[in-house]
Amino acid sequence: MTDPAEPAEPVEPAKPVDCDDPLRLAREMAESYRAAEPGQVPRRRPRPKRRPQQAGGQRHDRDDAVPLASALGDLVDQQGWTDQLAASRVFTDWSSIVGPDIAQHSLVDGYADQVVSVRTDSTAWRKELQLLAPRIVARLNDELGQGSVIRIDVRGPEAPSWKHGKRAVRGGRGPRDTYG
C-alpha cells in the first residue's frame, strides 16, 4: 500500500469515446489493455450516452432498434395479409367462439371461400352443429368481421372402408357377406 501522506499519482482524464468507427474503438480498447501493467486491471472508459428517442416514434436511422411486434405488423400490412390472419382465427379461437363443450367434439377442417368446414366425432354432434349453425355463423362474424363467414359445412365421422386389397367384390354387404 502507499503511504497516505504521499500524493497519489495523477490520473489521466478519460478521452471521449467516438462510436462512429467501431474498428478504431476496438483498437483503442486493445491498446489500453496492452498498456496496463501485468496483474493490473485497466480503467474502464465511460459508456457513451444513448441518443434520445426521436419524437413521433419515426425511425430515421436504419440501425435503430425496433420492437419485433411493430416490424411484423408493418410487414403484414405491406403484404396485405390482414384478411388471411383474421381468417386464421377461426382455427385458433374455435373453442372460445363455440364454447368448450362443442369444441371438445368438433374440429375445424378448413376455411375457404367464406365457408368453414367442421368435422365432428359423432353423428349426434353433427346434427347438433347443423342446428346451431346460424348462431355459430353470427358469432364468427362478430369475432372476425361481418361477412367473413357465410355458412358452416358440418361433416360427421366417416365409416371405415371394408375394401382391402387390389381385388374387391362390388355390391357386397361388407364383412357380413362372408357369414353363412
Rank of each mutant, 00 (worst) to 15 (best):
T82V: 14
P67W: 04
L85I: 07
G73I: 03
D77T: 10
A87T: 05
R50M: 06
Q78M: 13
S106K: 01
Q78G: 03
A36I: 06
A26K: 00
A87K: 03
Y111R: 05
A14I: 06
S88A: 08
Q58A: 05
E28T: 11
Q78S: 15
D64N: 03
E9L: 10
H105S: 09
A26L: 15
G39Y: 00
P38S: 07
A65I: 06
L68R: 04
S70D: 13
G56K: 06
R50F: 05
A5S: 14
I97V: 11
R59T: 06
R47H: 05
A87P: 02
S70M: 14
D21R: 13
V98T: 02
Q79A: 09
P46S: 14
A55E: 12
Q104G: 14
V11M: 07
A69P: 01
F91Q: 02
P38F: 07
R43Q: 13
R44F: 10
L23W: 10
D77E: 14
A26Y: 02
G73M: 03
H105Y: 08
D113Q: 13
P46H: 01
D77R: 15
V90D: 00
P67M: 01
Q40N: 15
Q104R: 15
D109L: 14
P42H: 09
D20S: 14
G57F: 04
Q84Y: 11
G56Q: 01
R59C: 04
R89M: 02
P22G: 07
P10F: 04
V17C: 01
S88Q: 11
G99H: 01
P16M: 03
C19V: 12
I97S: 04
P48T: 13
A65W: 02
P67Q: 02
Q79F: 08
S70C: 04
R47N: 08
T82H: 07
P16Q: 02
Q53S: 08
A55H: 10
Y111F: 07
I97C: 01
V17T: 04
P16H: 00
P48R: 11
V76Y: 09
S32V: 05
D113K: 12
S96E: 08
L85W: 05
I97T: 05
Q53P: 08
A35M: 06
G110K: 02
V66F: 01
D63L: 10
A36E: 13
P13W: 02
A103H: 01
R45H: 13
W81L: 15
A55L: 05
R89A: 10
Q58F: 06
V76W: 05
P48C: 10
G99D: 09
D77S: 15
T92L: 11
P10M: 15
A35D: 12
P7G: 09
D93C: 09
M29V: 10
G80M: 03
R45K: 08
G57Q: 09
I102A: 09
Q79L: 12
D83F: 01
D74G: 15
R24C: 00
G57Y: 07
Y33G: 12
L23I: 14
Q78V: 14
S88F: 04
